[in-house]
Design a protein around this nucleic acid. Sequence first.
DNA 1: GACGAGCGCGAGAGCGCTCTCACATTGGAG
DNA 2: CTCCAATGTGAGAGCGCTCTCGCGCTCGTC
Lengths: 331, 331
Amino acid sequence: MKRPTLEAVAARAGVSRATVSRVVNGQLTVTPQIRDAVMRAVDELGYVPNSAARSLVTQRTDSVALVVSEPPTRVFSEDPMFSTVIRSASLELEAADKQVVLMLAGSQKSHARIERYVAGGHVDGVMLISMHGADPLPAAVARMGVPAVSYGRPAVPVPLPYVDNDNVGGAVKAVRHLLDRGRRRIATIAGPQDMIGGQDRLAGYRDALRDSDRRSIVAVGDFTRQSGAAAMRHLLQDDPQLDAVFVANDLMAIGALQALRQAGRRVPDDVAVVGFDDIEAARFTEPPLTTIRHPVSEQAAAMVQLLLGLLRGGPAVPVVLPTELVVRDSA
Amino acid sequence: MKRPTLEAVAARAGVSRATVSRVVNGQLTVTPQIRDAVMRAVDELGYVPNSAARSLVTQRTDSVALVVSEPPTRVFSEDPMFSTVIRSASLELEAADKQVVLMLAGSQKSHARIERYVAGGHVDGVMLISMHGADPLPAAVARMGVPAVSYGRPAVPVPLPYVDNDNVGGAVKAVRHLLDRGRRRIATIAGPQDMIGGQDRLAGYRDALRDSDRRSIVAVGDFTRQSGAAAMRHLLQDDPQLDAVFVANDLMAIGALQALRQAGRRVPDDVAVVGFDDIEAARFTEPPLTTIRHPVSEQAAAMVQLLLGLLRGGPAVPVVLPTELVVRDSA
DNA sequence: GACGAGCGCGAGAGCGCTCTCACATTGGAG
DNA sequence: CTCCAATGTGAGAGCGCTCTCGCGCTCGTC
């Protein structure tokens, strides 16, 4: 009932351990004839290399950690984006024959655990998903000297290459669209300012308005639907004249749509709404939501490629992916 | 720049490797004084055990595979349940100091990969999430003789312990509720019959109706909202008199609600609707959805405990968790 | 035909750890 | 005071693999 070892395969094929090792690892300095004999022995015995033994000597583990840092609000992990990122990253890593070790970073305790684990050299690299400014993990990971990348630009400056979408550019696109449609009083519902998406999308809104001579009208939410509805009510109270609102994510935009309906405003006739993210639900709102799409899968895949590059000794250059305006009926 | 080894710690503490090993592994046959000295050396050097070396000799890896089998329809992985299960299982395993290796089973290729990986003894146990009847993976995993458990009862009989919720009982509860409210013509929108949830919930519906003398009216969907709406339209066409419908999941129930509204039926006045799952959106439908709640997190945690039990040589007994009727406005 | 280059293969060391076993050392009993 | 158990520690083997090194063989060259 024991698993066969290199030794057993070698004995069966009538060669040395070293030769079997060469064949198994695909070196081409082996005579085809011997190679075949070894392959046959491998098949017959059902030999599978012992990864522990292998990584003991190679100092590689062929596995990477996918660290998901859970923000206090839990927005992210309840987000469908969460599964998309994980799935896309997994598929991409699978193609590169890397194992994915999933680690959730919630509590203080789990932080210590992750640091120990990574510092212990149990993984070749780290992918960090953290959208929260106060998160100490990006800095910690960067400090450890292990190849690491971040999904999304870290909210505080940290020497960690990242793959992000162009939040600023996307917000600019959204606001420009509203300006092009002749909207005059364009408000925004911003995201939490301790998350990079929140910061950058607000910055984009401000940039776009600065070019025109409109004044900015800002309410802040926390990326949940409820907060979007609340923010919309505030905005309507502050400036009943507003005729457009750029909302920093679709979930809040859906809340805003609700609030507008309750306030008796027609969308887009009275108030135009543009969201951000293009989540699935954006297609089914009433009216369907105009929004900024960013490629979540591609971003995850790009993150993996960035890490794989690092592992091969490549450069640590951030990647920023473009966004796209999706025009539906709400603006 | 090299990581310290046991040897180094031993040298610094002035003891043997064996003693350091004892301390690190928490054996209590070490004199407190020596123990302290070792601990100090460990701290000073920042020693972290090399897991490859350790599992090479212990034949354990302290990690388990979480295999997510992606059904063709992709319903599951887009489901928020997906993240909930993963999160809950991860947290529970973290508490037991086990590593989580995430594996997606989509293509044929990935199946082979997973089998190789698991058979290769790279993990101590396997957790399988597969809701799809035609999936060969549960059988394959069961055959390998590695400790393994399934989230949800495998759709075909397979010698694999599982943790499931009481789908049949939940459906019975739903239908009984409709009966109690005096509904006379109770239809159902069933889920796909190659998924266990689809089968069992339909069985529960039939069971409950058999006790009364109502006839059953069945349409089948595929757990997506669109299919729910389509099925509802069919049902209304087949039997315009129906006054209630039990829908096998909330997503389809939401679709059904839409279809009913478009058909000019009032909910619950004309037609009562009960869903299944209690997803978050069920609270925000118009009207809020009466549904069957099952504890997803608890189920995932129970699955982990079941596996941990197996790893300790415990018994392989399936667990079935109770469901709960959540009454809102739709029925 | 002699010689050196080059290529394929095997021997053996060693990765960092655990664990068995034998060896002190101590304390209590006779 | 001797002896034996009990207890704590160290020496050393070995987990399964990779990789360096050197040896023997073949082939081309002069």
